[in-house]
Design a protein around this nucleic acid. Structure first.
Length: 368
DNA sequence: TTCATGACCTC
DNA sequence: CCTTGTGTCATGAA
């Protein structure tokens, strides 16, 4: 059996690049795409930035107020609210293009996808490079968006590879050079290793993938649980058999919002809860789902997160079920946490099943 | 099987 | 600096 040839495509600094595309005068200026929470003029977090902003230390996740402070001397800096419709439209067009070139296709998020092209290139990584370059050209000529591509024998490596040279990069990891490529890298480059895990590993004396690969599987399983332990061990050794598969369905639909002010006052919270319930409900109806569980999430003033959920006797599609259940659950939740105020509130429906004998609106629209 | 929590993903 | 929003998976307890 020849090696698989998996391609990972990552659209560069996607939201900010979409904005640059719409308004080319933004190029060469720091672009900061923001999620405004609506609490004060500048409250909220940075979603994405272009490379000009990144070079100055303005990156995803930092508070908008902080980004403004860093850029206060740059009168050319631009702060924009997220425009999801625009990004969705561009993403969908690119994903359709990519899908048409793949034997198997898996969209991972709005700006990332895996393609299995093993048969097409017959295990030949040089041919795969040609296809990677062609895809980059096609994406650019169709949508004027650059991307970074990783080509490797499996998904994990392809993803690490696409991150290796950015933006507008292409990195190939041949089967025979897997460990040469992987082992010098920091463990944080591995999908699934975030801040917490990185710290834990560092305390165990694990910094690089080579360190991780050397650790006994048993030890990793003891520390991170059977699933993650095995996963870390395998991937550090370049092993990953996960197929490229379009995932059908979803597990949950949720909506979260920041309250105007911290409170635990039901009359202040319920209107917002209702609005979120309506939005989650609309999405579930549009996609043709029934839900059997309803939940609430509360992000408290001390930034801890609490949740309550309840399973109904039978699957429902009624807005009223979401509203009444989540209102109930919110009361329960507040009773369980006497002192803290709520900062952000969320509603979630889960335990989803497809409405029988009914095409979802999306599918319906695709047909017409 | 259900529920609560935590870690992580990305932007 | 003062922290958005969405979703998945894993774990441990009941």
């Amino acid at each position: 059996m020849e090696s698989r040839v998996i391609l990972h495509v990552d659209l560069d600094y996607f939201f900010a690049q979409c904005e640059e595309r719409e308004n080319p005068s933004l190029r060469n200026r720091p672009v900061v795409v923001c999620v405004y929470s609506g609490r004060t003029a500048d409250s909220g977090a940075v979603s994405t930035t272009n490379y000009v902003a990144r070079a100055l230390g303005v990156k995803s996740g930092i508070p908008i107020a902080f980004a403004k402070r860093i850029l206060k001397e740059r009168d050319d800096a631009v702060f924009l609210p997220v425009n999801e419709e625009l990004y969705e439209r561009i993403s969908e067009s690119i994903m359709n293009l990519l899908r048409s070139h793949a034997e198997r296709f898996e969209q991972e998020s709005i700006d990332e996808a895996f393609l299995d092209i093993s048969k097409k290139v017959d295990g030949d990584f040089e041919k795969a490079e040609g296809i990677g370059l062609q895809l980059k050209r096609e994406i650019y000529s169709k949508e004027r968006i650059t991307c970074s591509v990783g080509i490797a024998p499996n998904k994990i490596l392809a993803k690490v590879a696409s991150d290796f040279r950015k933006p507008d990069g292409l990195t190939i990891v041949h089967p025979e050079e897997v460990t040469n490529f992987l082992w010098p890298l920091e463990v944080g480059k591995l999908y699934g290793v975030g801040k917490k895990t990185e710290k834990k590993m560092s305390e165990m004396g694990i910094q690089t993938m080579a360190d991780l690969a050397k650790v006994d599987v048993q030890k990793l399983i003891e520390t991170f649980g059977p699933n993650l332990g095995k996963y870390f061990h395998d991937s550090a050794n370049g092993i990953d058999d996960e197929p490229v598969e379009e995932r059908e369905g979803r597990e949950q639909i949720s909506r979260i919002a920041t309250l105007k002010e911290n409170t635990r006052d039901a009359p202040k919270i319920t209107p917002e809860l209702k609005r979120l319930a309506e939005e989650a409900h609309r999405e579930s109806v549009t996609e043709g789902w029934k839900f059997r569980s309803v939940g609430v999430l509360a992000f408290m003033e001390d930034l801890t997160v609490h949740s309550r959920s309840r399973t109904l006797e039978s699957p429902s599609s009624k807005l009223e079920d979401i509203i009444s259940t989540s209102t109930d659950l919110l009361k329960e939740l507040l009773d369980g946490i006497p002192d803290l105020q709520i900062r952000r509130i969320g509603v979630k429906v889960s335990n989803l099943s497809k409405q029988e004998g009914q095409k979802s609106l999306e599918e319906f629209l695709k047909l017409s």
